[in-house]
Nucleic acid binder design. Structure first.
Length: 256
DNA sequence: ATGACCGTCCACGACGGA
């Protein structure tokens, strides 16, 4: 049975609900959309999706962070936080869909809050690694999809788009991402495109999109049996050119 | 060479984002 799901850091769902609804209408094959940075509490999440027949699950908070699921089929939430990541911040929600566990994540950026802020980023990566081991031990097929705030290699950001000591590039951040790969997971984009620059984010400043000065920070990591079903990983770059866009674009995973 | 954006809130400036 085929399955298509997507991820999009929307940078405020209340500001961009119409863009999300338009996108869903133009992508009828996408069963589940994972959102990050909704920047609101559950009760503030726009009602138009449920009014249109979608199923919605929200892990929200005031002003910052927040993740949500919008589904064409009824939703079962397995957890609304990442086990082992001790924090009030709403950064993880997980569902099970057609026998596949899908973890929707928003990793801490790690540039603010000094050493403690960076440690929070590494703690999240380690908790995600533990989640990977747990799910594999349980024999489950799963995907971790979302905004990782990590450029895994030098090929994953435009020259000079970030300062060399940025938290998105730090060796410890990249080691945390590689540890997920070593646990057996497959980077969907690199599975299909082993080389080449494919960005998912362009800063609002300095005409970054027009200059294609972007980053690859939105990723989908797949468990082994799911990776065997991978048929497509699409970056919907055109969304960045719309009126009042998010700074991230949707990424879409297709499985056979 | 430099600066350049955006969304949120006990809102008109500070903070976080990346």
């Amino acid at each position: 049975m085929s399955l298509t799901f997507a991820s999009w850091n929307i940078n405020s769902i209340r500001t961009r609900a119409h863009l999300v609804k338009d996108w869903l209408d133009r992508n009828p094959d996408c069963t589940l959309l994972c959102l990050q940075e909704i920047k609101c509490e559950a009760h503030q999440f726009p009602k138009l999706f449920e009014e249109a027949g979608f199923h919605v699950a929200v892990a929200g908070q005031k002003a910052y962070n927040g993740v949500a699921l919008i589904s064409r089929v009824p939703l079962t939430v397995t957890t609304d936080h990442l086990p082992g990541f001790e924090s009030d911040e709403a950064r993880y929600i997980e569902t099970e869909l057609e026998g596949v566990t899908i973890g929707n994540l928003y990793l801490p950026n790690g540039n603010s809050g000094g050493d403690a802020g960076f440690a929070k980023k590494l703690n999240f990566l380690e908790a995600l690694h533990q989640r990977s081991l747990t799910l594999q031990k349980e024999g489950r097929s799963f995907a971790f999809i979302g905004d990782y705030n990590v450029c895994p290699t030098e090929e994953d950001y435009a020259p000079k788009a970030l300062s060399p000591d940025d938290a998105l590039l730090r060796p410890e951040s990249r080691a945390g991402f590689r540890r997920l790969l070593w646990s057996g997971l497959t980077d969907a984009l690199r599975c299909l495109h082993p080389a080449g620059r494919h960005y998912t984010f362009w800063d609002y400043q300095a005409g970054a999109y027009q200059r294609n000065s972007g980053l690859r920070i939105d990723h989908a990591l797949l468990s082994p049996r799911l990776a065997d079903r991978l048929t497509g990983f699409t970056i919907d770059k055109d969304e960045r050119g719309r009126e009042k866009p998010s700074d991230h674009v949707p990424v879409v995973v297709s499985l056979s």
